[in-house]
Design a protein around this nucleic acid. Structure first.
Lengths: 270, 270
DNA sequence: CTGCTCAACTTGTTGGTACAAGCTGATGCA
DNA sequence: TGCATCAGCTTGTACCAACAAGTTGAGCAG
């Protein structure tokens, strides 16, 4: 039986925090200090019950706090595990470099160049433009667009989902866009070859907690936010595409280089 | 009225989900569809207990799911409220425009220009460089830097915290950096006047759940991620500053314009 | 040795209770 | 009228119990 009186009597000073928070804070400190390294398993709930002289619910409240902060994850039958957080940095200002276009698909190139194994699944469909997409592509909401959707993995871990909408007028000029299957030389390159040159883009970056659908596709539990990257590409005349990429926030960062960075070396800081 | 018995009796169809998740999903749908608008109060726990024929713990589990997804927030004595999510867009590629420097502080200008009221508190201190900062500024870890820290509000709502480190060598040339108090014309402008011109920068953008300290400063509850923006500024020769900004992820987005965007209008899409 | 079963662990879900603590409006006294 | 108090609402914290469900390894049967 939990005794409020007892706790006050021999805890003395720093007792303002509720007990479940003390559990979370103690474990957080031990994770930060390396007592429990990334990948390591925490003690089981019943162990923690004994250690903190708390009920199972209280211990679970504390653990759930850490789960919702993305520090640990739990799986039924296995226990709680400290999440690792090595990140993949995507150089967005070089990702489709306007001055030095890369060969092939930009994502494949980027992932392979750091010695990891890319893998993706494709889907192509015709769909009416949503309000958000229509506004960015400067077309009427509901008008036909081609949506190319892909689900990307790195070393078989779900990494990101990417949806690109092309306006209907553009697809007439570049029919392969609406065909299923990869465009091996890269869509930007393919479009350039068909007289559609992307001369600029507008990026929007936001973060939020994943929807249930996103959590399923990216295999993220509670406590891991997603990073939303919306890139609208422009030709000389008008918008030519709108790409929405949803990243696992714990595994990805984005970077931009603007102006002259004479002192900076490659791949640094890591 | 929701009937558990009914659900169990013709078990067959859509019953795989645990009850607390059904509660969360039902409420999420009602929030999405506008039944509960942003700012509105949800029914109390005991109302939901009756409606879903569930125990208080089960209802709370469902509500906590929505809290941890940032859809709602709770306050003791008041109830659960649907969070609003109008965002402030920061144009990072124009924020300290290299070609057209703005007058005064960039943040104040940006906030005022959309008709909102900025407010900030300042703190200046000398501090040894952490490993992260040292790496970015290309100085030795532990060497002296000047840290200018500010805590920013918009219409009295906590908005972001910003910490800028300047390397020791630079402060010798531009002494006002280490003095407390605002630099009214903007630090970038002040540095330019002292022969230190920022000709490029490197941005890193990440997201994660807030630390307890961040949650306190930004007044965000569980379920709202932060957006981390690290900008390292370069002169012709070397790095001259490193700025780490921590935004409330629910209230902020960042945007970049790269290349030519001839078709794009200002302040759009909203 | 192989392969299967099962006990013994783990977390997940759901029910219950009790009291603390924050908020609000009604009541009643000065 | 004005202000203090308090009842009655809300959520927060903490405890208990029971069973479901996933994982693992020991141990037995073939």
């Amino acid at each position: 039986m939990y005794q409020q009186v007892e706790r006050v009597s021999h805890d003395g000073c720093m007792d303002k925090q509720p007990k479940y928070r003390q559990v979370a804070d103690a474990l957080r400190r031990e994770i930060d200090s390396g007592t429990y390294a990334p990948g390591a398993r925490l003690p089981s709930e019943s162990d923690l019950m004994k250690r903190f002289d708390a009920s199972r619910n209280t211990v679970r409240n504390g653990l759930n706090l850490l789960v919702s902060q993305g520090l640990i994850s739990s799986s039924q039958g296995l226990g709680y595990e400290v999440r690792s957080h090595e990140v993949f940095k995507l150089n967005a200002s070089r990702f489709e470099n306007l001055d030095f276009p890369q060969n092939g698909d930009a994502y494949n190139t980027d992932v392979t160049s750091v010695g990891r194994r890319p893998h993706q699944t494709f889907r192509v469909e015709m769909s009416p433009a949503s309000e958000d997409v229509a506004e960015r592509l400067k077309i009427d909401a509901g008008s036909t667009t081609v949506l190319r959707f892909c689900h990307r993995f790195v070393d078989d871990v779900p990494w990101s989902t990417q949806a690109t909408w092309y306006p209907g007028w553009l697809v007439e000029q570049s029919p392969r866009l609406s065909q299923p299957g990869d465009i091996e030389e890269g869509t930007t390159r393919y479009l350039t070859a068909h007289g559609i040159e992307q001369v600029g883009y507008f990026d929007e970056i936001a973060t939020r907690m994943p929807t249930p659908e996103e959590a399923r596709l990216l295999e993220i539990g509670a406590g891991v936010p997603v990073l939303l990257w919306t890139r609208t590409g422009y030709s000389e005349d008008r918008p030519i595409r709108c790409t929405v990429t949803t990243f696992r926030g714990d595994l990805n960062q984005m970077t931009y280089e603007i102006g002259s960075l004479s002192g900076r070396e490659e791949n640094e800081p890591q």
